[in-house]
């Protein structure tokens, strides 16, 4: 009987852990999902992961410093205005997770971007963390592995 009770308690704990973790882990969308869910997301805040493409613009938005770039993941693109200081290791080719919301309208200085999405929408974000890869091969002058959509491989 005590063994049965213990097994039930353990099963309950594992069940709660898996369910809770499963819900909590959906912390960011790929760009294609964010574009697809644009109507559902509305002006609500969400997180999105992608790789900044080369061609970053520094500007000012509402009196604050901002950086403008195009984000890419899963073959989809989105223009981004990130307000505030970007992450210390923010670079084209290094994936980032951004938090913000969709805004109608093009980004300021869109003509200066290399390959803008230019779809009449942009992401206005204010929180950035870097999602680094697991590659630790160190060689003099080694080039980073950059996949087609700009994600580091």
């Amino acid at each position: 009987m005590p063994i049965l009770v213990t097994l039930l308690v353990v099963a309950a704990i594992v069940g709660v852990l898996v369910k809770t973790l499963g819900d909590a882990t959906l912390v960011f969308h790929e760009v294609d999902a964010a574009v697809e869910l644009r109507a559902d997301l509305g002006d609500g805040r969400f997180r999105v992961v992608g790789t900044p493409l080369p061609g970053l613009l520094e500007t000012r938005v509402d009196g604050e410093s901002a950086v403008v770039f195009t984000l890419c993941s899963a073959g989809a693109y989105a223009d981004v205005v990130h307000v505030g200081d970007p992450a210390e290791l923010f670079q084209p080719g290094v994936p980032v997770v951004l938090q913000g919301a969709w805004k109608a309208g093009s980004v300021p200085g869109i003509a200066g971007l290399d390959a803008p999405a230019d779809d009449g929408w942009h992401l206005r974000t204010d929180h950035m963390v870097v999602k680094h890869d697991n590659d630790y091969r160190v060689e003099e002058g080694r080039q980073a592995d950059i996949a087609a959509c700009g994600a580091t491989g």
Partner: peptide, 25 residues
């Protein structure tokens, strides 16, 4: 004695990586 994590972006040539933070690995 180990090197920092520095790689070059293939198109921009900019240095990317974890730099000295990799040492905590």
């Amino acid at each position: 004695l180990t090197e920092p994590d520095v790689r070059l972006h293939p198109t921009t040539g900019q240095e990317i990586g974890q730099f000295d933070a990799v040492r905590l690995l």
